[in-house]
């Protein structure tokens, strides 16, 4: 009879629905479809879609590419020379290394220009959390994730690590300048 005893009618699946249930199921179903197709719609017409371009990599391979970029495009250094500030041309491939416990190097990008940002980790999982814009991307060791970014506002952005990576996790902050 109640929900804690067997259904009173053995043919319970033949009972008609109440109108409240029928209407609600219909509404909920339509809303679920709207939400599903919204994701597809945004892939066709929206500007914020996360790339899934990914390559297997190793710390050595990735460091070599990042170092080549730093050698070619460094414009100055910060924090007593610890962080080169790299200003690659618009459209370039740019590299950011995540490791215990910093993001290296500092990037300097131009507003409204598009870059191919390569992300990987040298050790554990890390998080790329761009603030204050609040864009959050997982960084997984062994995988090079290529994200196409187009900064739409100039300013100083921080990259906060938001995947727990050990005792120094809270010191792991990087920087991106947008001119």
């Amino acid at each position: 009879m109640t929900a804690i005893s067997p259904p009173s009618d053995r043919l319970w699946w033949k009972h008609p629905l109440d109108r409240v249930e029928g209407i609600w199921i219909t509404i909920a179903f339509v809303w679920c479809m709207v939400m599903f197709f919204m994701m597809i719609y945004w892939h066709m017409y929206g500007n914020q879609n996360l790339s899934t371009e990914t390559y297997k990599t190793t710390p050595e391979m990735f460091t070599a590419k990042a170092q080549a970029m730093v050698d070619q495009y460094t414009v100055r250094t910060e924090v007593d020379g610890a962080y080169p500030v790299v200003a690659p041309p618009a459209g370039a491939d740019v590299y950011m290394i995540a490791r215990l416990w910093n993001f290296w190097p500092i990037l300097q990008l131009e507003k409204d220009q598009t870059y191919r940002l390569h992300l990987t980790s040298m050790d554990y999982n890390h998080g790329f959390s761009l603030q204050p814009a609040n864009i959050n991307i997982q960084i997984v060791p062994g995988y090079e994730h290529v994200v196409t970014v187009t900064p739409n506002q100039s300013g100083t952005y921080s990259v906060v690590c938001n995947e727990y990576c050990g005792i120094g996790h809270h010191t792991m902050v990087g920087r991106i300048y947008v001119k």
């Binding site: 910093n102 998080g127 204050p132 995947e163 727990y164 010191t171 792991m172 902050v173």
Partner: peptide, 24 residues
């Protein structure tokens, strides 16, 4: 979280970080 604050994070003031970010 909507303002971006991280989960599993000991110090939102980032003490000891060379490039600390300041949350609103």
């Amino acid at each position: 979280g909507t303002l971006g604050v991280s989960r599993r994070h000991w110090d939102m003031a980032f003490q000891g970080s060379a490039l600390a970010y300041e949350w609103p």
